[in-house]
Design a protein around this nucleic acid. Structure first.
Lengths: 156, 156
DNA sequence: TTGTATTAGATAGTGAAGCTATGTAAACTT
DNA sequence: AAGTTTACATAGCTTCACTATCTAATACAA
């Protein structure tokens, strides 16, 4: 019981601090003159992690509605950060794949953001850094459950 | 050097995972039929932590523009979650304070969200929980640096 | 094979949340 | 007491997200 409550509290506080962090990032991006939405970076990140996906699957993975993803993809195609690859098996669909330019842009965005954050965290202890890394790993694996599963083959 | 790089990497991954988590939360909130924006909850959270604030200070603390906060506050007042308290010293301004109903609503929102997340994290180890808590504390203190400072007296 | 149902994605229209620019009234300053 | 600054509200716009719907391709049934 106590354990569950402790976890519940920790999660609750995590959500809170997360929300503030994201808002801070949004502001930092704006101040740095970034024209690209966080949604674009999130989409690129999904593509990089999960490989080529159809628009619908990408929407699910990014947790946005399909028309939203259609627009996001259009923007990313325009920037040359993703490519549409025709799907040989289904003429209705095309796979979306991150391009080399997209990989670079994403890496630069992330590096730039980390650089802005770095000075504020430069003073943390080894132990804190360890905890941070452990938590990142923890979240990475457990958030997967909150996201739609990878497409799975279902028995006939 | 290596330390800084390790920290940079950790921050970069933190941002990534954060972005996914927030998106999941947004979806969960929508699916649960919550009509209130994350911005409202963030604002209430700031008020609870920092006590009564003027609209301008609240906007800074929440990292939104002042007109945005004016609208947010209007919505919160309408719900009875915050109250305007006339500022005796300055008739232009009023302090915004969270109400008892606001405290309750915020607690319920957080509890509800934590309950949804809980099952996905129920299996984590003591050590993971410790790391999570330590990280939350770490972020809480360090993100403060990313936010505009509290009003400070400057030497004349 | 042809007609119907389903599926993938695009388009249309709307709402919400953010912004900048500007207005108004109170408070300061000289 | 006049001009300047400050605090917030208002107006108008942009962007991102949604639902509903349309089109075209596929799958399936007869």
């Amino acid at each position: 019981m106590t354990d569950a409550d402790a976890l519940r509290d920790a999660l609750s506080e995590l959500v809170q601090v997360n929300s503030r962090l994201v808002q801070a990032i949004r502001r930092i991006a704006r101040e740095n003159g970034s024209v690209d939405s966080l949604a674009s970076w999130r989409t690129l990140g999904v593509l990089q992690r999960r490989g080529p996906l159809r628009v619908g699957a990408l929407a699910d993975a990014s947790q946005v509605a399909q028309p939203t993803m259609t627009k996001l993809v259009a923007g990313l195609v325009e920037r040359g950060w993703v490519e549409r690859v025709a799907d040989a098996d289904d003429a209705r669909a095309s796979k979306i794949d991150i391009s080399a330019a997209g990989v670079t842009a994403l890496a630069e965005w992330r590096a730039g953001l980390a650089s802005v954050l770095l000075p504020y965290f430069a003073d943390i202890s080894e132990g804190d850094l360890d905890a941070l890394r452990r938590t990142v790993t923890l979240l990475d694996t457990h958030i997967a459950g909150l996201e739609p599963a990878e497409p799975q083959e279902v028995a006939s």
